[in-house]
Design a binder for these strands. Structure first.
Lengths: 201, 201
DNA sequence: CACAGACTGGACCTACCGGTCCAAAAGGAG
DNA sequence: CTCCTTTTGGACCGGTAGGTCCAGTCTGTG
């Protein structure tokens, strides 16, 4: 039998339990470092159930990617409106604060998955690229809005600016994680913000 | 018996063959995705030799990290002198060109290793952090030189600027790898360069 | 209350992985 | 030539990983 959608409330709860456990374990130990037996134990679920809801590990990982993207975006309520300098600055502050709280552990969940899967699982790569798109879009739209409002210069390119900012986030997180120092993200984001600001109208 | 330094020319050649093969395989498939048997086969070497020169997989991985850092720095001859705007711009161009040549595959070898090992192997994390230090230092020194030469404003902080630039590289590479588009690095580096330039005296 | 379909538990299988061990070959120094 | 160290080949081992299978238990519906 192949994969099965849960058809009862209980089934959905089980599937969710598995996905929650898998998402957290994968964030903590990576895909390769997380065995299905670990997931099974953490979700207090039997092997049979795992394979009832997911075709194989790859299938589970794809579901984990999806949930991870949702979590990362969900953890940034500020994404809802990035159409003012204050909003953008506040959003950056939140990102840094999150790393301080986490003691600079873990890096970016999406970025980490990308590093681990991009070369081995083309579908995963595409899904993660989609995650970055959904992350970048709100900033791009916010900048566009600011352009319309006359806060951002006409000549500025919201698309490139948003990409450069996302790159600063990712790079800042790589350095933060490797050096175990949240200030690395602070430095990267301060630079990114100042760069954006240089296009202020 | 524990690990052994090669004492003959032949032994050194064997150890190098193993390390070369391991470094390449790890770059292509990650640490978890590279089995010692893969390394053994690629280096045309027997199991006994592997454990003659390396205590265990972790030991081999540490050696791979060392070699990887050397390779990454070695691939950037421009690091030797980054004390002019032209030199910095040329260095950035080279980095982008490298990604174009590689078809945006692989990302940053150091960053990838960091993502995979930072949370599981503290010693590896420290070694990789050291790699970033050695990468960042030449730019910092170049900027300092430019400051002394009156090309960079007095108020600028070479340390932060170098960190922000390295973050742009890393982030640009993450996006490049995930989106399979070398232009992502181009955008990140153009932004980083413009930011540096905003501190020109 | 019956029964079909959804769900659950866990024994079991095979492949592969990191790691051990040891005997044989190579090769330089006396 | 001899002897000792270095180097080499590969059989072997225990653990664990992903994955299969199926019998048994729920559960909602007619």
């Amino acid at each position: 039998m192949t994969v099965a959608e849960p058809r009862t409330e209980k089934g959905r709860a089980t599937r969710n339990r598995v996905l929650d456990a898998a998402t957290e374990l994968v964030f903590e130990h990576g895909v390769a470092g997380t065995s299905l037996d670990d997931v099974r134990a953490a979700a207090t679920v039997s092997k049979g159930q795992l394979y009832h809801y997911f075709a194989d590990k790859e299938d589970l990982v794809h579901a984990v990617i999806d949930r991870t993207v949702q979590q990362v975006l969900g953890a940034q309520p500020a994404l809802a409106d990035l159409s003012s300098w204050a909003a953008i600055a506040g959003w950056c502050d939140d990102l840094v604060q999150l790393q301080v709280d986490r003691h600079a552990i873990g890096g970016c969940p999406i970025g980490s998955l990308a590093g681990e899967l991009a070369e081995t699982d083309e579908k995963a790569r595409a899904e993660l690229a989609g995650g970055f798109d959904r992350w970048e879009a709100p900033l791009r739209e916010g900048l566009r809005q600011m352009q319309a409002d006359g806060k951002l210069r006409r000549g500025a390119d919201p698309t490139s600016l948003a990409t450069a900012t996302l790159a600063a986030i990712q790079g800042g997180l790589v350095l933060t994680q490797t050096r175990r120092d949240p200030q690395q993200l602070r430095i990267a984001l301060d630079a990114a913000y100042a760069y954006l600001r240089s296009f202020a109208a």
